[in-house]
């Protein structure tokens, strides 16, 4: 049965910003492996057209007139934020970037 490497799982967990314990890494190695085994079936498909379907919508994208609409008041912006600071939303400091 296909299994992903520990490094692959750790890389993906970091991309997804999900903390994984060593046990979880093991279980993801198998789970992701099994999924790849299933989806790898598509590699046998040949002769398809390159045109990609990014959405089932066939209409041309409609464009919005450049006008300013209603905006939120400051209190609404902050209403669901777990941590605020004055008029701002607060997060731990983002260093050097």
């Amino acid at each position: 049965m296909k299994k992903l490497s520990v490094e692959e799982v750790k890389h993906v967990a970091h991309l997804a910003r999900i903390q994984v314990s060593d046990e979880e890494i093991e279980s993801y190695r198998t789970r992701l492996g099994a999924l790849y085994e299933m989806v790898d079936g598509i590699h046998e498909i040949e002769g398809y057209s390159e045109e990609m379907m990014i959405t089932p919508v066939e209409e041309v994208c409609s464009l919005r007139k450049d006008e300013v609409g209603a905006m939120l008041d400051g209190a609404s912006v902050l209403s669901n934020a777990p941590k605020t600071n004055g008029k701002f939303i607060e997060v731990p400091v983002v260093i050097n970037e």
């Binding site: 919005r64 450049d66 006008e67 300013v68 609409g69 209603a70 905006m71 939120l72 008041d73 400051g74 912006v77 902050l78 004055g86 008029k87 701002f88 939303i89």
Partner: peptide, 26 residues
Amino acid sequence: TKSKIFSSSENGYGKDANSSCTVVDL
């Protein structure tokens, strides 16, 4: 432009903090 690229809130500079946004921008 007058408004933002993906929402209709104002594209301005030097406004009060968090006063030119909609649920889309958030």
